Computed example of a mutant assay.
Amino acid sequence: MCKDTIVIREIKPEDNAQIEAIIRACFHEFKIPLEGTAYSDNETPRMFESYQNINDVYYVIEDNGVILGGAGIKPLKDFEADVCEIQKMYFSPKIRNKGYGRLMFETCLQAAKKMGYKQCYLESASQLKAAIHVYESYGFKHLKEALGNTGHYSCSVWMIKDL
């Protein structure tokens, strides 16, 4: 893995299996519940197909054809039209703590602004302490309850930020 060969780009159909494996591995690694989370979402095995609308996007981090992580933006389901959700942000241990998570996060926030969203929402698991710290450092504020209808009833951290 070389810093010069790592790129952030939009997902392609051939990335589905690799990003699904990364997403699912994180749940086992951090002992996050499998039900009521992204692990059991119908879109997890078909990420490319799930992010093909005009108001959403999914990015992957790639190094010479190997997918090392990803994150996306979608409208927050069953909520106000100008609120998006950062979704399915998971990374391989190979690139954690090297600044790529922050770079991906910034890429998603910029995309959300360009798409005209006014606020960005996210849900997380309390086990993902490093990620929650990053969210807080970007000005995300904790909420007392979930917004919208994500179906992620096992997530216990809800945060929002004005864009």
Results as ranks from 00 to 15, higher is better:
residue 112 A to M: 09
residue 132 I to L: 04
residue 78 D to P: 00
residue 76 L to P: 01
residue 163 L to V: 11
residue 127 Q to G: 09
residue 80 E to N: 12
residue 104 M to G: 12
residue 36 G to P: 00
residue 15 D to P: 03
residue 103 L to Y: 12
residue 143 L to W: 02
residue 29 E to T: 14
residue 16 N to W: 02
residue 43 E to N: 07
residue 28 H to N: 14
residue 155 C to Y: 05
residue 41 D to S: 15
residue 158 W to S: 10
residue 11 I to D: 12
residue 110 Q to N: 13
residue 95 I to G: 11
residue 110 Q to M: 06
residue 145 E to M: 00
residue 52 Q to I: 08
residue 90 Y to I: 02
residue 118 K to A: 13
residue 138 Y to D: 07
residue 39 Y to R: 08
residue 93 P to D: 15
residue 104 M to H: 10
residue 162 D to H: 09
residue 46 R to W: 00
residue 115 M to R: 11
residue 127 Q to Y: 02
residue 59 Y to C: 10
residue 64 N to K: 11
residue 93 P to H: 08
residue 33 P to K: 05
residue 30 F to D: 15
residue 92 S to I: 08
residue 60 V to N: 13
residue 44 T to E: 00
residue 72 G to S: 11
residue 9 R to W: 02
residue 117 Y to W: 00
residue 57 V to C: 11
residue 56 D to T: 12
residue 116 G to Q: 09
residue 81 A to Q: 12
residue 15 D to C: 04
residue 140 F to S: 10
residue 51 Y to M: 02
residue 142 H to L: 00
residue 37 T to L: 03
residue 120 C to S: 15
residue 70 G to N: 07
residue 150 T to W: 00
residue 16 N to L: 03
residue 9 R to K: 09
residue 113 K to A: 12
residue 18 Q to T: 15
residue 56 D to W: 02
residue 40 S to L: 05
residue 66 V to T: 14
residue 71 A to F: 01
residue 6 I to R: 08
residue 69 G to N: 09
residue 23 I to R: 04
residue 152 H to R: 10
residue 59 Y to H: 06
residue 159 M to F: 00
residue 65 G to K: 13
residue 70 G to Q: 04
residue 97 N to C: 14
residue 136 E to Q: 10
residue 66 V to Y: 05
residue 22 I to C: 02
residue 161 K to P: 03
residue 113 K to F: 00
residue 6 I to D: 09
residue 138 Y to F: 12
residue 26 C to M: 06
residue 161 K to G: 08
residue 99 G to I: 10
residue 135 Y to M: 05
residue 109 L to W: 03
residue 41 D to T: 07
residue 138 Y to S: 07
residue 8 I to Q: 10
residue 9 R to Y: 04
residue 88 K to P: 03
residue 44 T to M: 01
residue 146 A to M: 08
residue 121 Y to P: 05
residue 158 W to G: 06
residue 162 D to E: 13
residue 133 H to N: 13
residue 117 Y to C: 09
residue 141 K to C: 06
residue 72 G to Y: 00
residue 161 K to W: 03
residue 144 K to R: 06
residue 92 S to L: 10
residue 106 E to Y: 01
residue 137 S to Q: 06
residue 29 E to S: 14
residue 20 E to P: 02
residue 92 S to N: 11
residue 30 F to T: 15
residue 29 E to V: 11
residue 21 A to M: 05
residue 18 Q to E: 14
residue 144 K to H: 05
residue 114 K to L: 12
residue 23 I to C: 05
residue 74 K to M: 09
residue 160 I to N: 01
residue 30 F to Y: 12
residue 119 Q to L: 06
residue 106 E to N: 14
residue 8 I to K: 05
residue 37 T to Q: 10
residue 47 M to K: 04
residue 68 L to I: 11
residue 13 P to S: 11
residue 31 K to P: 00
residue 99 G to L: 05
residue 155 C to K: 07
residue 99 G to W: 03
residue 123 E to Q: 15
residue 47 M to Y: 01
residue 73 I to C: 10
residue 26 C to G: 11
residue 111 A to E: 14
residue 40 S to T: 14
residue 12 K to Q: 15
residue 39 Y to K: 07
residue 9 R to I: 13
residue 69 G to K: 10
residue 148 G to Y: 03
residue 83 V to Y: 03
residue 33 P to M: 08
residue 109 L to C: 07
